[in-house]
Amino acid sequence: MARQLHARIETFPVRGQFTIARGAKTQVDVVVAELTDGAHTGRGEGTAIYYHGDTAEAALAALQAISADVAGLRRADLIGLMPAGAARNALDCALWDLEAKQSGARVWQQIGLPVPQPMLTAYTISLADAETMAAAASAVRGRELLKVKLGGKDGPDGDIERMTAVRRAAPDARLIADANEAWGGTDIERTLARLARLDVELVEQPVPAGRDAELDGLRPAVPLAADESCQTRASLDAIVGRYQFINIKLDKAGGLTEALALRHAAALRGLGVMTGCMLCSSLAIAPAFYVAMQGVYADLDGPLLIEDRPHGLRFVGSDVLPPDAALWG
């Protein structure tokens, strides 16, 4: 039987409400690609990058447009065939999964990784007022690593108030922060020095993508990670010297194939790696797990923030457990 591609949109409710500087979400729509050869089926999932103007419907249409041409499709073909984004991510990961099932070798074995072990992942505290964020941090006080969403309309001073409240509520937690491009045109060096006194380990994307030159000459008391400013390998030249880390997300990179290449290229440039995710189910986190195994920070809590699909990843304490073959790869 010739290979066939089936694609669809699936919707998952968010637990409570997920809020960042750009707004709140109560559900997430993902696109799922299923690639079958008649005996085996490979699956992949992508979440549209909303700040790129992408949508689940557009990603589905892109997959449907290519469905007649998947018979001999290889992962190496995808970068020239489709732009980076949710559609390419879903199809690329479906190809990896199908190849693993056909060969009997898990994806981590094909990559050349050691046997996967449970991995510490960050847990996200949504943007709100300081009191609400402190309550949210207190409710998950046992978690080892918290990622705190900042970028409030009251500016860096308000964000310092938020982070101070979170620190008081979770005095033993490790903290990283995401400014979501909100500190452009402000005294970022001063803000980072204040965050350093709260033992914040990392700050993501303090300035809007494209305005990274505002970081030239900065002496950051806390390392900076490029998120919106880092999409694929083509982003790296503008990052070196301005950021110390990059945040790799498979939806931004357009699949596991590019994400692995991006991680390698970043390492050659002396950049540390954080592996992140969009709001998504365990099907999307499974391939990201293998990128995160090769990085410093993992932010793979997407399934904890939604009503996840059945038989998803297991989370124990602050750790996410490796995916099994029934889920992916």
Rank of each mutant, 00 (worst) to 15 (best):
C93G: 11
I66D: 10
G85P: 07
A128Y: 13
D159S: 07
L150K: 03
G151N: 01
M119S: 09
I79F: 02
L63I: 15
M119D: 08
A105E: 14
V70M: 10
P116H: 10
A135C: 05
L73I: 15
A94E: 08
E99N: 01
Q110W: 01
M133S: 01
A135W: 00
Q109D: 14
G142H: 14
S126P: 02
D159E: 06
S126G: 08
S67E: 13
D129L: 05
D157L: 15
R106M: 12
D159K: 01
D97S: 00
S138F: 07
Q110K: 14
D159C: 07
P118S: 02
I79L: 08
R143H: 15
A87W: 06
A122L: 08
L63P: 02
Q110P: 06
G142K: 12
A65N: 15
Y123H: 06
D92H: 02
L113P: 02
K101C: 05
L146V: 09
D69R: 03
L145W: 10
G104K: 00
A137T: 02
I125S: 04
V107P: 00
L146R: 06
Q102M: 10
W96M: 04
M82P: 10
S67H: 05
G72K: 09
R75D: 02
T121F: 07
L91I: 08
L120V: 14
D77N: 11
A94I: 12
S67A: 15
L98I: 13
A136Y: 05
P83A: 02
T124I: 00
A105Y: 11
G80I: 04
Q109H: 10
V107A: 12
G142A: 13
R141C: 11
A105N: 13
G158A: 10
K149P: 05
P83Y: 01
G80V: 03
P116Y: 11
G104E: 05
L78M: 08
A130M: 09
G85I: 01
M133Q: 03
P156T: 13
L95N: 08
V148S: 04
V148L: 05
L127N: 00
A139F: 06
P114W: 03
K149G: 02
R143C: 07
G142Y: 12
M82Y: 15
L98Y: 11
L63D: 07
G72A: 12
A90M: 15
T124R: 01
D92V: 01
D159A: 07
C93E: 09
T132G: 03
T124M: 05
G155Q: 06
G158F: 00
K101A: 11
Q102I: 11
A76N: 14
D92K: 00
A76L: 14
E144V: 07
A130I: 10
D157E: 15
M119T: 09
D154Y: 14
A76G: 12
I160F: 13
V107H: 01
G80L: 09
L73H: 04
K101Q: 12
M119E: 05
A122N: 11
E161C: 10
R75G: 04
R75T: 09
P156I: 13
I79R: 03
G158M: 04
T121Y: 08
T132R: 02
M133F: 01
V115G: 05
L150T: 14
A84D: 15
T132P: 00
K101I: 06
S103H: 10
K147Y: 03
